[in-house]
Design a protein around this nucleic acid. Structure first.
Lengths: 151, 151
DNA sequence: GCAAGACTAAGACTCAGTCTCATTACGCCC
DNA sequence: GGGCGTAATGAGACTGAGTCTTAGTCTTGC
């Protein structure tokens, strides 16, 4: 999981420009912040982080930026069963992952698993549907909170 | 998918009684309504349906009833990416299923898949976590809306 | 530099879900 | 059956995430 992904932010800017979007300070800040996230963040996290950076951005602008990004497949919206949605950059190589939430401490961990992806791919045929997208969310207990050890 | 599942409602009543809960009209109505649902319904659906039945129930009571049921593992709460959560009875035999949402018409379809369950079971070991629960949500296009045919 | 219109900020608004508290009624004891 | 303790209920105020509106600002093409 990259801590900062300048390639994603450059890619995002390029896609938006191609789509005829002008640049705007608020959206650029959101893209910048997202590129620096190790995992998913909520709109309110973004609002708070930008305020801390001394660049307070209107809430509507944040949601608008996230909408625009999601529209172009640049961010992925996640419902983690909390009251608020979380957002994370979607890499341009199509690679994607899923999440485990620790029910004790709330930690969010990303993982990927080819078997799982295969099983889901096969499902489209079985169900007679075109499957465009899927979410998988696991809930459990992490090592720190008493999950199985030793490592 | 049973249209009405009297065994679930009886089971739910029994579990709640064992847990020391008294019976109450509001919760009984919610249990009754849930038992009759083919798939997940939202709290507002429940509120509306009970009002239509001429048995209007306070919103707080509905959420309280759903909370109590979820606490005892009798209903499952689903986030379908809509603004509101949905709830469905959890069968006592531990059998569970997942959902596909059609992005065109919004239809919710249930399915189960042993391969998928196996893949998820194996993940706990791989991740070194105890996995207690999981949600899978597929998004796609159903047959009626132009998904793959022929039937 | 200018104009068009895309972008932004502030905050009012909506709506799902929670909380409070007065009232009702279940279930046990006598 | 009547009384009592307490869980369950209902009404509606409240909270907080997300949306909408509107006036103003900034980009960009000319």
């Amino acid at each position: 999981m990259p801590i900062h992904d300048p390639s994603w932010s450059a890619y995002a800017h390029a896609v938006l420009e191609d789509a005829g979007h002008r640049r705007g300070g608020a959206r650029d800040e959101v893209i910048d912040l997202l590129a620096a996230q190790p995992c998913a963040v909520s709109a309110h996290d973004i609002e708070g982080a930008l305020r801390q950076r001394g660049r307070p951005i209107g809430r509507a602008s944040i949601y608008r930026a996230l909408d625009t990004l999601a529209e172009h497949g640049l961010v992925k919206r996640l419902d983690l069963g909390r009251s608020e949605a979380c957002y994370e950059p979607a890499r341009s190589d199509g690679h994607h992952h899923h999440h485990v939430v620790c029910e004790m401490c709330g930690t969010l961990t990303a993982f990927d698993d080819p078997d799982l992806e295969d099983a889901i791919d096969r499902l489209g045929d079985r169900l007679g549907m075109r499957i465009d997208d899927h979410d998988v969310l696991l809930r459990g207990v992490c090592r720190n909170c008493g999950g199985p050890g030793p490592r």
